[in-house]
């Protein structure tokens, strides 16, 4: 870790989402449901110049771990992010996200007449294998996942 990166904020336990595609950190926060209304302490670095990836965003969250669904959608917004789990001020675990074949329950189908928007006991399911993201039930495409987070 360089001194340059250190000056941001050190957290004791939590998650650092690194290498976020520049400009996407607000969408990452939206995805995680972070809007400042909770007690979570969050720091955000926008357009940090990094020697390896050019410009990037970073999000650091105290006392929060991400679940698999959140990681899956993260992969759609910014495929190259690195998740660093911080324990006792140190990076204890580091992993990359993988684009899944499907995302379940995280996105809402924009088609109001889709069965997933009716009162039925099912979760939404989107096929993300191809370059487009399409509803498994009605086929409707989603252009911008950040507009359809449930």
């Amino acid at each position: 870790m360089t001194d340059k990166e250190l000056h941001i904020s050190k957290i004791e336990n939590g998650t650092v989402i690194d290498h976020i595609k520049a400009g996407q950190c607000l969408n990452v926060l939206a995805l995680l449901g972070i809007d400042g209304s909770d007690e979570e302490s969050v720091s955000v670095v926008m357009n940090f110049s990094s020697s390896t990836v050019g410009s990037k965003d970073i999000v650091k969250i105290q006392n929060r771990e991400l679940n698999q669904d959140e990681l899956d959608v993260l992969s759609l917004i910014s495929p190259n992010v690195t998740i660093n789990i911080i324990s006792n001020y140190e990076v204890s675990l580091k992993h990359r996200v993988q684009r899944p074949e499907y995302v379940v329950g995280v996105l809402n189908c924009p088609n109001r007449n889709c069965i997933t928007n009716a009162k039925e006991p099912i979760e939404s399911k989107f096929n993300v294998k191809d370059e487009v993201i399409s509803c498994e039930y009605c086929g409707t495409h989603i252009e911008d996942v950040t507009q359809h987070l449930s």
């Binding site: 007449n113 889709c114 069965i115 039930y137 009605c138 086929g139 409707t140």
Partner: peptide
């Protein structure tokens, strides 16, 4: 009348299902 109804319904049952029109 809803798109995807047949696909959803087929997931809940073991007998064959034929979609006779979903929205």
């Amino acid at each position: 009348p809803k798109e995807g109804a047949a696909k959803m319904a087929s997931g809940f049952i073991d007998v064959p299902l034929i979609n006779a029109g979903d929205g």
